[in-house]
Amino acid sequence: MIPAVTVWFDGDCPLCVREIALMRRLDKRGAIAFENVAGDGSCPIDRADLLARFHAREAGGPMVSGAAAFAALWRAIPVLAPFGQLARLPPLLWILERAYRGFLRLRPRLQALVRRLDARPSRDAA
Score class of each variant (00 low, 15 high):
residue 125 A to Q: 08
residue 103 F to S: 02
residue 82 P to S: 04
residue 76 A to C: 11
residue 71 A to N: 09
residue 64 V to Q: 04
residue 91 P to Q: 00
residue 73 L to D: 06
residue 41 G to D: 04
residue 43 C to Y: 05
residue 104 L to W: 07
residue 65 S to C: 13
residue 44 P to T: 10
residue 104 L to I: 14
residue 25 R to H: 12
residue 107 R to C: 06
residue 102 G to E: 00
residue 103 F to D: 02
residue 83 F to S: 14
residue 28 K to M: 12
residue 7 V to M: 08
residue 109 R to N: 11
residue 80 L to V: 04
residue 12 D to V: 05
residue 74 W to G: 11
residue 110 L to K: 11
residue 88 R to Q: 15
residue 1 M to I: 09
residue 84 G to Q: 09
residue 53 R to L: 06
residue 100 Y to V: 04
residue 126 A to V: 13
residue 14 P to F: 04
residue 117 L to S: 12
residue 83 F to N: 10
residue 60 G to E: 03
residue 80 L to H: 00
residue 87 A to E: 01
residue 39 G to A: 07
residue 62 P to Q: 15
residue 87 A to C: 09
residue 42 S to Y: 04
residue 74 W to N: 07
residue 40 D to H: 13
residue 31 A to Q: 05
residue 76 A to Q: 02
residue 17 V to E: 03
residue 17 V to N: 11
residue 113 L to V: 08
residue 105 R to P: 05
residue 73 L to G: 06
residue 58 E to G: 13
residue 68 A to L: 07
residue 36 N to V: 04
residue 99 A to Y: 01
residue 29 R to V: 04
residue 126 A to Y: 03
residue 16 C to L: 02
residue 56 A to V: 08
residue 49 D to Y: 00
residue 57 R to Y: 08
residue 18 R to Y: 08
residue 54 F to K: 08
residue 18 R to S: 14
residue 89 L to E: 00
residue 104 L to R: 15
residue 106 L to F: 06
residue 82 P to V: 01
residue 122 S to I: 06
residue 123 R to T: 14
residue 45 I to V: 15
residue 104 L to P: 13
residue 23 M to I: 12
residue 69 A to C: 11
residue 105 R to F: 03
residue 107 R to H: 02
residue 40 D to Q: 13
residue 89 L to Y: 14
residue 87 A to P: 11
residue 26 L to Y: 03
residue 95 I to L: 14
residue 74 W to I: 05
residue 100 Y to F: 03
residue 74 W to H: 12
residue 111 Q to E: 15
residue 79 V to Y: 07
residue 72 A to C: 10
residue 121 P to F: 01
residue 78 P to F: 10
residue 42 S to G: 11
residue 112 A to L: 13
residue 34 F to S: 04
residue 14 P to A: 08
residue 100 Y to M: 01
residue 56 A to E: 01
residue 19 E to K: 13
residue 80 L to P: 07
residue 91 P to H: 06
residue 1 M to F: 08
residue 73 L to N: 02
residue 49 D to C: 05
residue 34 F to W: 05
residue 15 L to W: 07
residue 37 V to M: 05
residue 49 D to G: 00
residue 30 G to F: 09
residue 99 A to Q: 03
residue 126 A to S: 11
residue 125 A to M: 10
residue 10 D to M: 02
residue 110 L to T: 10
residue 40 D to A: 14
residue 68 A to M: 08
residue 64 V to I: 11
residue 85 Q to C: 14
residue 125 A to C: 12
residue 58 E to A: 15
residue 123 R to L: 15
residue 7 V to A: 11
residue 66 G to T: 06
residue 25 R to N: 09
residue 55 H to V: 10
residue 62 P to I: 01
